[in-house]
Design a protein around this nucleic acid. Structure first.
Lengths: 226, 226
DNA sequence: GTCTATATTGTGATAGAC
DNA sequence: GTCTATCACAATATAGAC
């Protein structure tokens, strides 16, 4: 009998292939289903029953693998947030020219979010309703040395150097970071509003994103000129 | 006995001043309390009991004035969304020079959101988890003639004219609108993340916003240069 | 209009057989 | 590991007295 529970648990002995779970690891199936349902309904709106059905497993198994609904919710939020945060921060802290970093971040961000278009709404909702979740994650990242603080400090030095050389506006790195992320992420979170208000739905939204991916780097770079 | 319920209901005969409700209109007290709780917890996370306590009234009264929890939720969302949408759209469709409109929108947006800093997180969460709500609102606005479509069309003509005169980049009005709104709204929705990741909390966030209010119009106007 | 009491269902969680 | 059965309680909603 294996010890269940815990956030960082991983498969420790294959299941016996019960009749219901057609393939692969049950725990993974549950986690994927939970991601789908939590992202769609929000943490409070999600139902364990619906997650079980989405995963095609018995509802009691959710508690076997993850202790509680909150355990599942935390696991899902971690995964979601770490999918749209760290890589971009890393890119932004590289030693390429700022213009190159901007282009990389914009392209990468929009590409990732096109594959997970509902993540921003979910993450922003969670941030608002469960702000404590992000705090724990930030602590870990900082402890690992992946901390965004160093990245921001380096970015600030680079911006200041370019400004001193008369090549750019002087701008606080925090403002720069927020501008960049806002312009990439917000359109996804606001998608339902754009669809309802200005008919930016379905294929129109895809075209909008394609144009945005191409134009946004230039928009930001022009805004940085002195 | 007065007919209760319905979204657009207003006070029709003062209450008898029950012992509990210290002052004023009970319905209004409930609606205000509902706003506080729904914004804090999200629609699904909010509890009718907590709203009643926040309002200082008996829980049964919530159902007397608003038929159901969903009725209350709709009323709150309408109020919230109409607080951060229509005015800005109107400003953007004025006949002042584009540069002036940008400055007006940025200042107005940031001022309004500083008074209601948790609205963006709530509205974006609702958009994601209850996209159907915004559709109804958009229909009404369009029916009223307040429609954002005309505003966007006018804005598009103005942008095209300035581009033809060689004074600006050519840009689709949708992209322009999204850029402007993203840069104003996103920082509020992402506030918990900024606080955890780069220490932008409390007074630091206020200073950040003050600087942003001053710098953002220039940032956007520079980005529009040819 | 406001209150108490209660109906009724929903929902997270666990015990225990297999 | 997975299932069935069930517990315990939370939560929306209503009935009816005042």
């Amino acid at each position: 009998m294996k010890t269940p529970v815990s956030t960082s648990r991983r498969k420790a002995g294959r299941p016996k292939q019960g009749a219901t779970a057609r393939d692969g690891d049950t725990e993974r199936r549950i986690l994927e289903a939970a991601r789908v349902i939590f992202v769609r309904r929000g943490t409070a709106g999600a139902r364990m029953q619906e997650i079980a059905e989405e995963a095609g497993v018995n509802a009691a198994l959710l508690h076997y693998y993850f202790k509680s609904k909150d355990g599942l919710a935390q696991a899902v939020f971690r995964e979601a947030a770490s999918r749209i945060l760290p890589e971009v921060l890393r890119t932004l802290g590289s030693d390429a020219p700022i213009e190159t970093r901007i282009e990389h971040v914009v392209h990468r961000y929009i590409d990732v979010l096109r594959e997970h278009p509902f993540l921003p709404g979910y993450v922003l909702g969670e941030l608002s309703f469960h702000p404590e979740r992000i705090v724990a994650m930030a602590h870990e990242a900082t402890a690992q040395g992946n901390g965004p603080r160093e990245m921001l400090a380096r970015l600030g030095r680079d911006l200041a150097a370019r400004a001193a050389a008369g090549e750019m506006q002087l701008m606080m790195p925090e403002q720069f970071l927020v501008n960049l992320v806002s312009l990439c992420v917000f359109p996804f979170a606001a998608r339902p509003m754009l669809a309802a208000l200005v008919n930016l739905d379905g294929p129109a939204f895809d075209l909008f994103l394609e144009a945005r991916r191409a134009e946004l780097p230039g928009f930001i770079i022009r805004a940085l000129r002195p």
